[in-house]
Amino acid sequence: QEVVNPEDYIKHPLQNRWALWFFKNDKTKTWQANLRLISKFDTVEDFWALYNHIQLSSNLISGCDYSLFKDGIEPMWEDERNKRGGRWLITLSKQQRRADLDRFWLETLLCLVGEAFDDHSDDVCGAVVNIRTKGDKLAIWTTDYENKDAITHIGQVWKERLGVPHKVIIGYQSHADTATKSGSTTKNKFVV
């Protein structure tokens, strides 16, 4: 009798099921109406099937976002798992759209689906890429802005994985501060 190796036919399960969302800025519609769920996946193979099927971030028009969130968490501040949370934010220069954007976003996705933040991966809610004329943005959202150890670890690992130089400082801001800011910048709760 032939012995079948399970590696040959079982897809590789991820720790979490993930949902990929797409936002397209149509000013005639509400913010929520512009947000669409593309698909969900929970295996390595299905992640790539989806990733290989969709446009690279750098091909999207200005005003669009991709968001990858754990199943059950909506990519908005109001969600129960986000409302006391915040985000690590990286703003890219215009030149970086061609040089870094797609590489940074894929690396971010691999950090999430691969659970690269060890025990602190539980604090991760998702990640967002915003395509904007004035400078694209990448963010990792976490669930609680008071969890300093988790946030710091996530920020350090993310920065290292993207290959961001040590001298470049990235900041973490609470969604509450971002929502109530008066100027164009939000104060950082943490930096790495």
Binding site: H12, P13, L14, Q15, V44, E45, F47, W48, A49, Y51, N52, E107, L110, C111, V113, G114, E115, A116, D118, D119, S121, R161
Partner: peptide, 20 residues
């Protein structure tokens, strides 16, 4: 334990799905 996957392991699967 957590199902953790290293980046190179994940990258190894990128074009495998299309071949099967």
């Amino acid at each position: 334990g957590k199902r953790q996957y290293k980046r190179d392991f994940l990258l190894g699967f990128q074009f495998m799905a299309a071949c099967t």
